[in-house]
Design a protein around this nucleic acid. Structure first.
Length: 588
RNA sequence: GCCCUCUUAGCUCAGUGGAUAGAGCGUCUGCCUCCGGAGCAGAAGGUCGCAGGUUCGAAUCCUGCAGAGGGCGCCA
């Protein structure tokens, strides 16, 4: 249940916020007037909170001011509520005020107030629900960041959908967003990767070699080796192992990186920056210190570095970490953590006001030290780490088994090919982000009401069919331009006041919630709220459709008004789906 | 052993101090001479893991216990 503090709201918030402002001041004024009239004794005015009641029969908005001030006023809450309520009626936006339960003041908006959202949607178009709570603040979202040593697993796909949708919602809420992929192209896993490919290559050349114990055994390693063989022949079989492995590392790395970009682009996820970990270790301009060295120098300057047993340590415990952490090992190598500190210093040096990292659940225990490092660098509180949980694959209720040891698994690319981009993205965002997700491949492919993505898309397609019908075209005629059709059918003069039945009011109420949904999703970084809302809105529209005949040649005014409402719903559905990254088909 | 997260309807899950705890699926019953039935309506279904505490009020906050998952390297 959301609560809105009373007081001034950013003027850029439109419909819902304007209503909240109106209601808040009505409540405050009613209390003040009651006090001035001597009906209530109050030294301080409570901050009236407005919330949306769970139960629609309790009205559109509800306030608990009466309960809050009961103690001080020395009156029963219900009596205070009665006093306040009677002073609120009469406003054109208010259809009724009731006192209920222990002392709730339940407010019902007038049809007049609700109808405004339809014009709002039409004026805003694809900007419907957009806000300015970000006020242009620069935010970076870093996500996926899979090691470039193999195909993405399904969890990576979920994190891609999550990060991209989060970025879209933040943009819609007025933030300036950059998407970034951190490429872990340094470290031993790259060597192991190159060695694995090189060994497979030698095998393909007919050489008798032993596969490295810790090598990557996936079939894709063989495929990469085969491609290099086809391209470059057998000449690398006779070079030194060092030369060969170095070459194969780079060659295979480039291939995998291209593959990652290709798959992500195919699902509509495009990054602004691909950041290479290696660059952090390279010497600075004019041969100066690397970024890793500079980051450690910064921490040293701030007093958080010490030497112990031949290693260089970061004192992270003052920031709540369990133990201090090694940055430079006694063998002279830097740890992954050292590079990650340099990476985050680089992010903030680039001027982001806020940085969001989406990490896999296995990095859970890493959060505290990273937050500690960011705080030590003087950016406390600007980093938010979101943990993306894994995906359990099912097929018709049966678990799809995967083995990490043998490298056998369903890759994300295979899943995309199987179920399609829309279903994959939609399903990934149906659950709270920090909860493991059960993904049923068969359900995702099913074209029935059991499949929520079809349910929502169907509502959109259905509206488009109605609009085509209203324009006199065949409902299935896809050559009809929806936007132009709508412009012909409705106008600013359309008599929206005709919309006053329960089904129509419910639809308008649901549309008015959209802005709040965007706000909550942006503030809480929870894009899964969008899919819930999309399903709610689709259901509300289907109910409206069932009860309200839209196209009726005998009632042109009512037809126009209902088309207006249907079109506003189309705009909202299309917008919310675009925030999820799912298409809004005009016909299915 | 220590730390984190989770436990809500048969199943999958919403719900971070308010009212009679919700949705989808599944089960059962209805609705097409009518704009897309890929739809709609209704019914059944609950000790919110357990036990205390705080509060006018707790699924929600605190403590303990039980169960599930994850994390605890001079790995990345």
């Amino acid at each position: 249940m959301r609560r809105y503090p009373c007081g001034p709201r950013p003027s850029t918030l439109e419909v819902a916020a304007a209503v909240i402002e109106t209601l808040s001041s009505l409540l405050s004024n009613a209390l003040l007037a009651a006090r001035d009239a001597g009906e209530i004794e109050l030294d301080s005015l409570p901050e009236p909170h407005l919330e949306r009641p769970r139960d629609p029969s309790h009205g559109d908005w509800s306030s608990n001011v009466a309960m809050q001030s009961a103690k001080e006023a020395g009156l029963p809450p219900r009596q205070i509520a009665e006093i306040v309520a009677k002073r609120m009626i009469g406003h054109p936006d208010i259809a009724g005020v009731e006192v209920a339960g222990p002392g709730f003041i339940n407010i019902r908006l007038s049809a007049h107030a609700l109808q405004r959202v339809l014009r709002e949607a039409r004026e805003a178009g694809s900007d419907f629900g957009s806000l300015d709570i970000g006020a242009g603040e620069k935010v970076q979202v870093e996500f996926v960041s899979a090691n470039p040593v193999g195909p993405m697993h399904v969890g990576h796909g979920r994190w891609a959908a999550l990060g991209d949708s989060m970025a879209r919602v933040l943009e819609h809420a007025g933030y300036e967003v950059e998407r970034e992929f951190y490429v872990n192209d340094a470290g031993v896993q790259m060597d192991v990767f190159g060695k694995s490919v090189a060994t497979r290559y030698l095998e393909l050349c007919g050489r008798d070699v032993e596969f490295p114990e810790d090598g990557y055994r996936g079939q894709y390693i063989v495929e990469i080796a085969r491609e290099i063989l086809a391209e470059e022949g057998e000449s690398w079989a006779d070079t030194s192992a060092e030369e060969r492995e170095a070459h194969f590392t780079e060659k295979a790395y480039a291939q995998v990186l291209e593959h990652l970009k290709h798959v992500l682009h195919g699902m509509g996820v495009d990054f602004d920056v691909w950041f290479s970990e290696r660059t952090l270790h390279e010497p600075g301009p004019d041969g100066g210190p690397s970024e890793v060295e500079e980051a450690i120098a910064s921490l040293r300057e701030a007093g958080y570095i010490f030497e112990h047993e031949g290693a260089t340590w970061f004192r992270s415990t003052p920031f709540g970490d369990d133990k201090d952490r090694v940055l430079k090992k006694s063998d002279g190598e830097y740890t992954y953590f050292a590079a990650d500190i340099a990476y985050h210093k680089d992010k903030f040096d680039r001027g982001f006001d806020r940085v969001i990292d989406i990490w896999g659940a296995d990095h859970h225990g890493y959060i505290k030290r990273m937050e500690a490092a960011v705080a030590a660098l003087g950016h406390e509180g600007k980093l938010t780490v979101v943990i993306g949980q894994l995906v359990n694959l099912f097929r018709a209720g049966e678990v799809v088994r995967m083995s990490k040891r043998t490298g056998e698994m369903v890759t994300f690319e295979e899943l995309l090919e199987d179920v399609g981009v829309d279903a994959a993205r939609y399903f990934f965002l149906r659950r709270s982000t920090d909860q493991p997700l059960d993904f049923d491949i068969q359900l995702a492919k099913e074209q029935s009401s059991e499949n929520p993505v079809y349910y929502v898309q169907y509502a959109h397609a259905r509206i488009c069919a109605i609009l085509r019908k209203a324009a006199g075209a065949d409902t299935a005629d896809t050559s009809v331009d929806i936007e132009a059709t709508v412009a012909d059918l409705i106008s600013d003069d359309t008599p929206l006041h005709l919309l006053e039945t329960d089904a129509e009011l419910s639809l308008m109420r649901k549309l008015a919630e959209f802005e709040e949904v965007v706000e909550v999703a942006a503030r809480q970084l929870t894009p899964f709220k969008l899919t819930r809302y999309a399903e709610d809105l689709a259901a509300t529209f289907h109910q409206f459709y069932t009860l309200c005949r839209v196209v009726d040649p005998d009632a042109p005014d009512m037809t126009a008004a209902r088309l207006y409402a249907a079109d506003a719903t189309r705009i909202a559905l299309s917008t919310v789906l675009s925030l999820v990254g799912v298409s809004a088909p005009e016909r299915m």
